[in-house]
């Protein structure tokens, strides 16, 4: 497995790609915060926020539907919000009987449900765009510039750096289990569910020992290459004038959404 097998970065040249990672992190967070602050049913503001997202897609040279195609990851979670359809008082839209409940969908409930879905759908797309236009190590570096404690950013950087090594290890463990799980035709291999969970647990224990021992070797190898407790990067990570201007403009636009949403 390649070391950046997990990165969602899409390598291309664009205005957004060239922006400093800090700018992208700050604007993404401001955008998500703004969505959370918009009132239920602020359709015009939601529409403008969507246009903002589409323009960011275009400016990033990835195609206008880039984030749309990947935006449904959060959708299964909508299940937990279904109850607001029935539990918020309001005018009845439709009543029906489900198993042993009498349910009434109210207009206020529907308004809230749709608003929650839109907020979630817009926010997740901006987060997708962030990791598509900045390399993950650069995002971690940006977090360090934004005063996230360095012990935490270093742990995250190591997590990311060695994940592919350990996932390779997991694949070896899974292949070994597969190879030993033969079964006669028509028979099921393996024991009870509890037994299978126990096997998975032993594999996790094995993975722990391998990771633990590997961390020693990793540390020694890093010392040999001059590690002093700080991770360096060859990217300059300097804020240029275009970075300041873009941040200011984006934040003003996002504030404008708030104003529109409260009209």
């Amino acid at each position: 497995m390649h070391f950046d097998a997990f990165d969602r970065y899409h390598d291309t040249q664009s205005f957004i790609h060239r922006l400093e990672p800090r700018v992208k992190v700050v604007v993404t967070i401001a955008y998500i915060l703004s969505n959370a602050l918009l009132p239920d049913g602020a359709w015009i503001a939601f529409g403008l926020a969507w246009l903002f997202l589409l323009s960011a897609n275009v400016l990033s040279n990835l195609g206008i539907t880039f984030t749309l195609k990947r935006s449904f990851v959060a959708l299964p979670f909508a299940l937990v919000a279904i109850t607001v359809l029935f539990s918020i008082p309001g005018e009845s839209l439709s009543a029906f009987h489900f198993l042993f409940w009498d349910l009434t969908i109210t207009d206020m409930g529907l308004l809230r449900f749709v608003s929650i879905l839109i907020r979630s759908w817009l926010s997740v797309q901006m987060a997708i765009l962030l990791v598509a236009t900045a390399r993950f190590p650069d995002i971690v570096h940006a977090l360090e510039h934004l005063r996230v404690p360095s012990i935490l950013t270093t742990i995250i950087a190591f997590l990311y750096r060695y994940l592919f090594v350990l996932v390779d290890e997991v694949f070896r463990l899974l292949r070994a289990r597969e190879a030993r799980s033969a079964a006669a035709a028509g028979e099921r291999s393996g024991g009870s569910v509890a037994w299978r969970a126990g096997v998975a647990g032993s594999m996790a224990g094995q993975l722990f020992l391998r990771s633990y021992e590997r961390s020693d070797r990793v540390y020694n190898a890093m010392l040999a290459r001059g590690y002093t407790g700080h991770l360096n990067t060859i990217n300059p990570h300097e804020l240029r004038r275009v970075d300041y201007l873009t941040t200011a403009l984006a934040l003003i636009i996002i504030l404008f959404f708030q104003w529109v949403g409260r009209l």
Partner: peptide
């Protein structure tokens, strides 16, 4: 010590990777 930070990073990797060890339920 400074040594523990790389260790913790790799342990974080371990937890992440260990979540991929699945077992069939039903």
């Amino acid at each position: 010590g400074e040594k523990q930070v790389p260790l913790m990073g790799i342990m974080a990797s371990f937890i992440f990777a260990a979540q991929m060890i699945n077992f069939p339920v039903a």
